[in-house]
Design a protein around this nucleic acid. Structure first.
Length: 774
RNA sequence: GCGCCGGUGGCUCAAUGGAUAGAGCACCUGACUUCGGAUCAGGUGGUUGGGGGUUCGAGUCCCUCCCGGCGCGCCA
């Protein structure tokens, strides 16, 4: 409703300006800062004063006159008929418009609930479908290869955690930002594909494999036995590998019980021990390269983990010289188990994916080989024969203004030993994402695919289910393109968002440049690096971690004097995502108990659900409310706050609003959107109620702004403003105890609009569950 | 050295070039026998790091300086 009026008024003003001789006028409508000034404002008369050589107020008057003429002939049903006749000119030349509050509110109410019929059907509170995906949408067809038949698809890649240890809060920022982007894009009418890239062949996974196979036994056992108790009776490397195979065989390698140590926690402990070993004994690094070598070679399909360990033990009691395939198989198991853990962790926050592209498949499917041919064909790369890069294939960046002023404007894609760099592989992968990695006959150079996993999250708030009841399916890539369930297709997006922290800006720019020089400037423009600053720890938080875990990160005084300290998986410094969630949940449980006493009659599992929803709300809101360019210095007290500008504050407003309607229904005073709309249509609506209604109506606009700028602080701020306005009105405008039925209907109408809007913002856009009770 | 990002009340943060720079925390004073006090009302606290410029209008854009962070590998 509101968006429609905006659009109509924008084009009406543009038409007036055109008639006044302005070439291609750009019209932007604001909302005035104070409601007395009006509901919509146009400040464009001021900058036009110079070119039109007229005082701005005169221009505004002229526009106002023309608008009146244009509106004179409009039918009553036209959106612009919802504006008060005339407009006011304020200050130096602001043109301010007012809505006819009663009819506008009535319209909002009817739109907000018109689809709220069938059970389970998706609500679209406050937003008519036609208002979504407006000009702020991103779905203009940009893919160069695709025909107009299929609707354009947006790809969002996020999370991308190295599958060698538990997720920490830095990964959480990535995933929450990515997931929020996904939700906003979908809300605005886009088709979205969610990818989580798995680097299963890198040194990080290799190091964990080294940990299992080669790290001195005592060190290895110190990490493993606390988490795998069955290895404690006769601790040995052999026993650990047996346990690994057994657990993999019976499906207990990963459990999804929150709070009990899991495989990723084991790796979290094991990994830093390996890196410390390398530091103490440089010769140990040869194990890393051996393992990497094995991983690259791969293993025969169908090889089980016990087959692999069989192959190892055949060479003696200590598996010091396992064969390539066995090691590779173990690496795959390590990666897969960690990925499972990450999926469970993210699922707890309502974050889900469609496909998991694996680095190993990119390798084996020969993505780079094909990309190399394309780059060579386009003469985008050259082989250096002399100088410091002799023997390397490089891409020149000298022609791009982006890289102007660089001392060395060449980027190496293939090393002198013939191996490809990370950036090189990334170019190939990005080409695939954009549907540009094609063979000579024009067909897509694609992966194979198979179902990764079926599992359901146990939580009833924000559940993520893969492969159950048709909720959603999760696939991983395969290296054989023939392996492809019917109807499954990924990649080839018209726009691609890569959610990666800001430190990767340089390689991301290189990738984008490669797309451009390959002759796809539009696709390059549609390759968006969603950059965000890192999450670090306050020195206070580091101290607290050390105390809580009995660890010593041996940080220098200099480090501790810094404003924040970077997390490091290699050193084991970090706040694990699940650990934080556990703490949040128990804090929430405590807060519930404090507030409600023991006699509120709710079952323990209901309480657990509420605590969980509150924990997720607090966490997601904290990640979303901060601007993406600012380092998030993590502080426990701040993260555990449930009052003030927090997720629970928003959730509470939603719960409170819903409660009003429960109480009304119990007294037979529930009314209906139609009744309230009728009441609203001919009431005088006071400023404060109108303010809230108007703010609700701006939600689509805020979602568009958030996506356009990739700043979800805008959306978080919008939600907080709504909740704040509601909480205030809640005290001043009782509904159940209203003076008379007319007043009640009006308040009920505005709160009805708010309840629908805040629920949509929290659940659909921000991914914050709304519990029934707090 | 070059590049990117930040600097806004004591603290943490917000603000498509627009109208009187907003929240929260902390501190002080108040508000339920009425829809849940994770709330609300009121108060103290700001030359938006310094300086110059552009503009009808600058926290926002340009220049410059200061402080802090991060990038600039044949690493991943």
């Amino acid at each position: 409703m509101f968006e429609t009026i905006r659009r109509e008024l924008t084009s009406a003003i543009a038409a007036a300006l055109t008639a006044m001789g302005v070439q291609e006028p750009q019209v932007f409508l604001d909302v005035p800062p104070r409601r007395q000034l009006g509901d919509l404002a146009w400040a464009g008369a001021l900058p036009l004063a110079k070119s039109l050589r007229k005082p701005p107020r005169a221009i505004a008057e002229d526009v106002a006159r023309r608008l009146e003429q244009a509106r004179a002939g409009l039918p009553e049903a036209h959106p612009l008929a919802l504006l008060e006749p005339g407009c006011s000119i304020e200050g130096p030349g602001f043109l301010n418009f007012r809505l006819r509050r009663g009819p506008a509110l009535a319209r909002l109410l009817l739109a907000s609930t018109s689809t709220d019929t069938a059970q389970g059907q998706k609500r679209e509170p406050g937003f008519t479908p036609g208002e979504r995906g407006g000009p702020g949408g991103v779905a203009e067809a940009g893919g160069s290869g695709g025909g107009p038949k299929c609707p354009p698809k947006v790809i969002v890649e996020h999370t991308n955690i190295n599958p060698n240890k538990a997720a920490h809060i830095g990964h959480l920022r990535n995933a929450v930002l990515g997931d929020t982007l996904v939700r906003c894009l979908q809300f605005l009418g886009n088709t979205v594909e969610i990818q989580d890239y798995i680097d299963d062949t890198g040194v990080q996974v290799a190091d964990v494999v080294v940990g299992f196979l080669f790290l001195p036994e005592a060190e290895m056992l110190a990490a493993v036995t606390p988490i795998w108790p069955e290895t404690a009776d006769a601790p040995s490397r052999r026993r650990v590998l047996e346990a690994f195979a057994t657990r993999a065989g019976n499906g207990t390698l990963v459990n999804d019980t929150l709070g009990s140590p899991d495989f990723d926690d084991l790796c979290w402990d094991l990994y830093p021990r390996v890196t410390r070993w390398y530091e103490q004994d440089e010769s140990a690094l040869t194990f890393r390269s051996e393992v990497l070598h094995s991983v690259e070679a791969g293993f025969p399909t169908g090889m089980s983990l016990s087959d692999a360990f069989e192959g190892m033990s055949s060479s003696g009691p200590e598996p010091r010289t396992p064969n390539h395939a066995s090691v590779s198989r173990l690496a795959a198991a390590v990666a897969e188990a960690n990925v499972r853990c990450h999926l469970v962790t993210m699922g707890r926050l309502g974050i889900a994916y469609d496909v998991l592209p694996h680095e190993s498949d990119i390798l084996h499917r020969g993505f780079w080989r094909r990309a190399f041919e394309l780059l060579q064909g386009a003469r985008a790369i050259r082989k250096e024969t002399e100088g410091k890069n002799a023997g390397c294939w490089v891409m020149s960046l000298a022609d791009s203004p982006e890289f102007a002023g660089m001392a060395d404007a060449d980027k190496i894609l293939v090393r002198s030993n013939g191996t490809v760099t990370y950036t090189g592989k990334d170019i190939a992968y990005q080409l695939w994402k954009l549907g540009l990695l094609r063979d000579d006959d024009g067909t897509l150079h694609d992966f194979g695919y198979r179902v990764f996993e079926r599992f359901a999250q146990d939580a009833s708030t924000a559940p993520v289910r893969y492969g159950f009841f048709g909720d959603r399916a999760l696939y991983r890539t395969a290296s054989d393109p023939g392996e492809r369930p019917t109807g499954v297709s990924f990649g080839a997006g018209s726009r691609v968002y890569n959610v990666i922290d800001v430190r990767q800006s340089y390689p991301q720019k290189v990738v984008k440049e490669a797309i451009r020089v390959l002759g796809h400037p539009e696709a390059a423009e549609n390759s968006v690096h969603f950059a965000y600053e890192m999450v670090a720890l306050t020195p206070k938080a580091v101290k607290r971690l050390e105390e809580a875990q009995g660890l010593d990160f041996s940080l220098s005084d200099e480090d501790m004097a810094k404003p924040f300290i970077e997390m490091s998986g290699r050193r084991g410094i970090g706040v694990k995502a699940d650990a934080l969630l556990v703490t949040l949940i128990s804090e929430a449980e405590r807060a519930i108990a404090e507030r409600q006493g023991a006699d509120d009659g709710s079952a323990p599992d209901q309480r657990a659900d509420r605590a969980r929803a509150i924990a997720v709300g607090a966490l997601r809101y904290q990640m979303a409310r901060q601007g993406r360019n600012r380092v998030l210095a993590f502080d426990f007290d701040e993260a555990l706050a449930f009052e003030g500008d927090t997720g629970p504050y928003l959730q509470y407003s939603a719960v409170r609003a819903a409660k009003i309607f429960e109480k009304l229904a119990a007294q037979g005073l529930a009314g209906s959107p139609e009744v309230d709309a009728k009441a609203a249509a001919d009431s005088a609506i006071p400023d404060d109620l109108w303010d809230l209604a108007l703010a609700c109506a701006r939600t689509t606009e805020m979602a568009e702004k958030a996506v356009g700028s990739l700043e979800f602080s805008l959306l978080a701020g919008h939600a907080r403003d709504l909740a704040q306005a509601f909480h205030k009105l809640y005290h001043e405008h009782p509904v159940l105890h209203a003076e008379d039925e007319a007043v009640r209907a009006l308040r009920r109408g505005v709160f009805r609009l708010f309840a629908a809007t805040i629920a949509a913002i929290l659940e659909e856009l921000l991914g914050i569950p709304v519990p029934r009770e707090m």
